[in-house]
Design a binder for these strands. Structure first.
Lengths: 194, 194
DNA sequence: CTGCGTATACCTACTAGTAGGTAGGTTGTC
DNA sequence: GACAACCTACCTACTAGTAGGTATACGCAG
């Protein structure tokens, strides 16, 4: 799946993990250069400015996210299973600390100090994810496997907010299990008729 | 209520609003100095280091938060009303943009790059808030006005996560109403027997 | 009431280090 | 020889933080 990772790829991968740790102003070109093993200035050859780098990084993140959701749809046909798989994916990411936070959720918290072009990408991710969750909830409600009051759209926003809040709590408490403590009852409730 | 605000107070107040906008690395001493109308170096007289400043800022924030919750308990005796008032408070803060994010929730997202002493304060706030919500939910369940499956502790964590996630979504979409879209059904569900 | 010490609050001037970014040169490959 | 990828060397602006000076206010002894 992964090709012969280029320097540009390595810069993006490194920047992503630094971004997940401390946000937009939490890392510098020097940090990346140190890890990738090139000079500070060489990063500018691939990405003229920091906002270019981050915008590209998010664009790739969004591609991967959409591919992940598509994969998940092929793997599971049941809407409830799709939601469970989505949550399990993040539970695993948080537990093994490989990517313990959604890049866009983290950047969203710093929107007032972000370059406009980055904000647009972040917002687009929120819309994409919300739309996907909404469609899953919608089909689950139609076939009677998922239960909620109100619209699928509203429930999708609430679901997404809970997942993001769960990431935050897991980080705040320094306890990966907290993510599951918050999300499992949520899945349980959606799967139960009441 | 507010005394003759000192320079130290102004620094803290200014730093808080800058912190809410862009996190720990999103503001500098120069930013504060510009707003407060003193020189960069003068801030060090009141707060030797940035971590001192932020730690003090959070300590005060936590005091205000606890006072706010205590006030809210005096104002409302019904647990459901207390939850509603808590949510309404944040809805108002977000709507008028006075403080559109919880200081500790924002800092929690950047925990990996925060000074240890700041992390401890942030974590303490999460515990305080969770404990308060837990006690409200507990008493609501006992008297039959709030309904949920599972423990009050788990429901409190889920509630807190939803509120934090709702702040994030409101910021991401640039739409204060999103906070209500997410939190109202949550309150509704807790107040309804099912 | 004066004069003296002391503490607070602020200042100017400075430091070392880092930020993102640029100019222009070198190397290797098609 | 053109281009990509990377380099050295440099820039300006800014970072948190320090050193040392000044003005003002308060308490207190004479």
């Amino acid at each position: 799946m992964a090709g012969p990772s280029t320097t540009s790829d390595e810069i993006l991968r490194c920047a992503r993990s630094l971004l997940i740790e401390g946000g937009y102003n939490g890392f510098s070109y020097a940090d990346i250069a140190k890890v990738v093993g090139i000079r500070n200035a060489s990063i500018h050859h691939h990405f003229p400015s920091k906002s270019d780098l981050v915008r590209t990084l998010i664009a790739r993140y969004r591609e991967e996210a959409e591919a992940g959701l598509a994969h998940l749809e092929r793997q599971f046909t049941n809407p409830a299973d799709r939601l469970r798989a989505y949550v399990s994916y993040w539970q695993a990411c948080i537990a093994d600390a490989s990517a313990p936070f959604c890049v866009c959720a983290l950047l969203a918290s710093q929107i007032p100090v972000l370059p406009e072009e980055v904000i647009l990408e972040v917002r687009a991710h929120f819309r994409t994810l919300s739309a996907w969750l909404s469609s899953v909830l919608e089909s689950g409600a139609r076939q009677g496997s998922l239960h909620f009051t109100g619209t699928a759209k509203a429930e999708a926003e609430a679901f997404m907010a809970s997942v993001h809040g769960a990431m935050l709590s897991a980080r705040a408490y320094g306890d990966a299990k907290m993510f599951g403590v918050i999300t499992h009852p949520l899945l349980e409730r959606l799967a139960t008729r009441h």
